[in-house]
């Protein structure tokens, strides 16, 4: 009797398994296959073993892109997390102002990635862009298409503008879940504003902060559309992050083999770093809970 029930459950899971197989497992296996072969003209393949991997690990190109990528992710995490917390702390707790804030904060999140790129491409142009002109008029020499540092500042600003509200909204939800009694107790204890933040708000936001850091890290590590639209990875290779480099290699140069090896290593790097992040944060969480 109960056995039929169990098997029926498997049938229900089957469509999802098939879908996952076709959408990710099989394409992924093709990539694995490509990464061990060389191709000429698109349909002649030679087995080259680990050659592409060896070459990639020796090439400066990958290491440079990886370095830029790590740099970018660290910078935006360092800006967006504190800024998001600050914004969340400043948001009104209730009333129509709170609702208005929530809507305004959600707006950037609703804009498609390539539109964000386009907006900033125009916004920051030093000849006609509002921001670009303003900065130039202030006497700074600013041109993201020519100057690597300017390009970086623009890409970072774009990401911060696009994603800080996500961090802020997550933190806001965390803050709202703190019972009033904590604030009342702190008032009675004459705790300073800093103590309230350090000992009440921050610990209570811990859970959502872990999620915010993970989401922002993974997402920024895979950034593609915005810098591509803005500068196409330039000037030079200044904003050529891993994904842009990968596409250049695969589509621009049609080096299917190295590109496949590249994407697999890319995937492994993300997986590895996310895993390390996750275990470190969860472990410290548990340790806190048990001590």
């Amino acid at each position: 009797m109960e056995k039929t029930a169990n098997q029926r459950a498997w049938f229900l899971v089957l469509p999802v398994l098939l879908l996952v197989a076709f959408s990710s497992v099989i394409p992924m296996m093709t990539v694995v296959n490509y990464s061990f072969q060389d191709s000429f003209g698109g349909n002649e393949f030679f087995w080259v073993g680990l050659e592409w991997y060896r070459e990639l690990l020796r090439s400066e190109r990958l290491w440079d892109a990886l370095g830029r990528q790590l740099m970018f992710s660290s910078i935006i995490l360092l800006i967006e997390i504190p800024l998001g917390i600050l914004v969340a702390l400043c948001m009104p707790k209730k009333g129509w102002l709170a609702s208005l804030c929530l809507v305004l904060m959600a707006l950037p999140l609703l804009i498609p990635y390539n539109v964000v790129g386009t907006i900033w491409q125009v916004f920051a142009r030093s000849d006609i862009g509002l921001l670009g002109r303003f900065v130039t008029d202030l006497g700074f020499e600013y041109n993201y298409a020519q100057n690597a540092a300017d390009a970086w500042v623009t890409v970072v600003a774009m990401d911060v503008w696009h994603w800080t509200s996500l961090v802020a909204l997550l933190c806001y939800a965390g803050l709202r879940s703190i019972p009033d009694a904590y604030y009342q107790a702190a008032e009675i204890d004459q705790a300073s504003r800093w103590s309230v933040f350090r000992h009440i708000e921050l610990p209570k936001m811990r859970g959502v902060l872990i999620i915010a850091v993970l989401l922002r890290f993974m997402d920024s590590f895979m950034i593609y559309t915005e810098p591509f639209v803005l500068t196409g990875g330039g000037p030079g290779n200044a904003t050529t992050f891993l994904s842009i480099d990968l596409v250049k290699m695969a589509l621009g140069q049609f080096d299917l083999g190295p590109a496949a090896a590249f994407s697999l290593m890319y995937f492994l790097v993300i997986l590895l770093i996310s895993y390390v992040f996750y275990t470190v944060m969860i472990a410290s969480d548990k340790e806190e809970a048990q001590s």
Binding site: A181, Y182, H199
Partner: peptide
């Protein structure tokens, strides 16, 4: 004041 639910500073 002591509240209905325990208020402690976790950290």
């Amino acid at each position: 004041q002591v509240f209905q639910f325990p208020v402690v500073y976790d950290t």
